[in-house]
Design a protein around this nucleic acid. Structure first.
Length: 335
RNA sequence: GGCGCGGUAGCCAAGUGGUAAGGCAAGGGUCUGCAAAACCCUUAUACGUCGGUUCAAUUCCGACCCGCGCCU
């Protein structure tokens, strides 16, 4: 794939003003920066964007929400060095968002950026969103709240009933989903019922993969111990930097039981406010859960295909120059 | 100094004269429209030390060490 992009392009250096996107390329270039929380994705993405006249497309399921700034570690406007950031602050806290919608929006955004001759850089830690964007999802019905409500009620009456039901509609799907994993069982069932066909059959038709781009995927993979330390420090910084006040402010706007409040740090801050946790425990649980989250992200990333691994933090100059070199090569700008 | 209680894996903790639950933490994994979510799996050369009794001690006895509490 992008091994073929070693073909040196006419002019060499990335002097400012030179459009990095070769107009005759066999697909528009697209860069993505993934990695666990706290690995320095935003910093690396920003660095690359600044250097290659890129624009950043957020790929984080929490940063899409307005008002959730501190706990989602949004790069403050002032720190963005004039680089345009997309798909940040696009939703109200009460709105539900899905991977499918993300993929749609992100694809539009990327197309737009490319059309202007700039380099789209997708940055964020939500692996599922990235996969939905790049590999696509299967073509099928999207979520249906009223159906879900009915299914949930049924499951509540008899635990495991949804899984049993699913095995009648699609035994293959049922075999792959653990009965305790109600959300996934629900989705599979929802699809079967809405499409009147087994999900498995729909899966077989493939995903609606992103077309027309050449993709360079970075995976930041810092040392686990160092990452954990950063995570702990960052969580502490969030609490000390006004996370609880941020939550109070959001509550004051009338939001209480909204989805983003379930996120790491926010959940704990909320419990602290409600008196269900003391300050020490709130921090402790936020840190621990964030460390676990990072672990899950790493698990997800390991499975991702064709990743250029960067064994360190994205704000490390050494890592940044490694990434720079790879992007240069990728764009066909290396000498 | 005396008395009492305790000392089991990284932490908490049950328990038995025949080599020992569980929980937490940790690690690994799954993921096709709520994914910072949800779910699954795995783990240990662990019974303070030294002796004694016994076929056999983590379990009983003694001494010692350490911790906690109380007393003088």
């Amino acid at each position: 794939m992008y091994n073929e992009t070693h073909v040196p392009h006419s002019h060499t250096q990335t002097a400012a003003g030179v459009h990095p996107v070769a107009p005759d390329a066999p697909g528009a270039p697209l860069v993505s920066v993934a990695g666990p929380t706290g690995s320095g994705k935003s910093e690396l993405a920003l660095e690359l964007a600044a250097r290659f006249s890129g624009e950043i497309v957020n790929c984080d399921s929490l940063q899409v929400y307005r008002h959730f700034d501190i706990g989602s570690a949004k790069l403050p406007e002032a720190a963005r060095r004039g680089v345009p950031h997309h798909l940040i602050d696009i939703l109200d806290p009460g709105q539900i968002f899905t991977a499918g919608e993300y993929a749609r929006l992100a694809r539009e955004t990327i197309a737009d950026i490319s059309a202007h001759g700039r380099l789209p850089i997708v940055a964020g830690g939500t692996g599922f969103y990235l996969r939905a964007l790049l590999d696509g999802l299967f073509e099928g019905p999207s979520r249906d709240q009223s159906l879900r409500d009915r299914l949930a009620a049924r499951e509540q009456r008899r635990r495991g009933s949804l899984h049993r039901l699913l095995s009648r509609f699609d035994s293959e799907a049922a075999a792959k989903i653990h009965p305790n994993d109600v959300p996934k069982v629900t989705r599979a069932l929802e699809v079967c019922l809405l499409a009147r066909r087994p999900v498995t059959e729909l899966y077989r038709q493939g995903r609606d993969r992103l077309q027309g781009y050449r993709v360079l995927k970075f995976g930041l993979m810092p040392d686990r111990e160092a990452l954990n330390q950063r995570i702990d420090a960052r969580c502490r910084g969030m609490f000390e930097g006004g996370l609880v006040e941020e939550v109070r402010a959001i509550q004051a706007m009338g939001y209480e039981a909204v989805k983003p409040f379930e996120a790491l740090g926010y959940a704990q801050a909320l419990q602290l406010i409600r008196g269900e946790l003391n300050a020490r425990d709130a921090l402790f649980y936020a840190q621990r859960n964030t460390r676990r989250y990072a672990k899950r992200q790493i698990t997800w990333l390991r499975r991702e295909a064709a990743i250029e691994w960067l064994r360190g933090f994205g704000d490390d100059p050494e890592i940044q120059s490694q990434a720079n070199r790879l992007v240069l090569e990728f764009l066909g700008l290396s000498t």
